[in-house]
């Protein structure tokens, strides 16, 4: 009897803690500009805020947390078709371009879409973007001509601590990540 009660308490505590953690997720953006201005910008946004605010916005492009993409062709590139193809493809390295001054690598690894760009011409720059496919799935879960931002935010909230974007060049650093802390450092 005691064992059963302890087990129940453990399950309740575990589920409760997980649910609490999922609720208190924060999206952070940190931009460090080391140039003449030497500026640091930090943004801490609770994902729960985005979850509440997105459905309350009703504009032509964004409605109920879904953004219309039918007209936005991204210079004749069908973004939705590309994302759909990547989502259904097996884990692999899709694109590797190595030139004298620039290396580009697009891969699917451990459930994430990875994009890495290393630029060595002019100002040296490293860009790394990680998009979990659960977020891609959520984005594509709406209608044919729309991206479901609200579902993507919810999917982000369900993830563990994740670094989404890092950009490093000679003068600046950008980092976008999700964790459960309400401060950037």
């Amino acid at each position: 009897m005691m064992k059963k009660a302890l087990l129940t308490a453990a399950v309740v505590l575990t589920v409760g803690t997980w649910a609490l953690a999922a609720e208190n997720r924060w999206l952070h953006v940190k931009v460090e500009d080391g140039g003449e201005k030497a500026e640091i910008v930090r943004v801490n946004l609770p994902l729960s805020l985005a979850e509440k605010v997105l459905p309350a916005i009703h504009t032509k492009e964004l409605n109920e947390g879904r953004v219309k993409v039918s007209e936005a062709k991204f210079k004749d590139v069908d973004l939705r078709a590309i994302l759909e193809a990547l989502r259904t493809a097996p884990e692999n390295e899709f694109v590797t371009v190595e030139s004298e001054h620039q290396n580009v690598r697009v891969a699917k690894s451990a459930g994430n879409l990875l994009v890495k760009v290393r630029n060595e011409k002019g100002k040296a720059e490293n860009v790394e973007v990680t998009v979990p496919f659960t977020v891609v799935d959520a984005l594509l879960s709406g209608g044919k001509d729309e991206l479901d931002l609200l579902a993507a935010v919810r999917a982000l909230g369900a993830l563990g601590d994740t670094v989404l974007v890092t950009v490093n060049d000679e003068h600046s650093k950008v980092r976008i990540w999700v964790d459960s802390r309400n401060t950037a450092d």
């Binding site: 640091i40 930090r42 729960s48 805020l49 509440k52 605010v53 309400n182």
Partner: peptide, 25 residues
């Protein structure tokens, strides 16, 4: 207005802390 109302309500439920910081010389 609905977005502002929702943001104010949800921010009220969030823990205290910095939302935006900009620092330069």
């Amino acid at each position: 207005l609905p977005a502002i109302k929702a943001a104010a309500e949800e921010l009220g439920n969030c823990p205290d802390g910095p939302l935006v910081e900009v620092t330069n010389p």
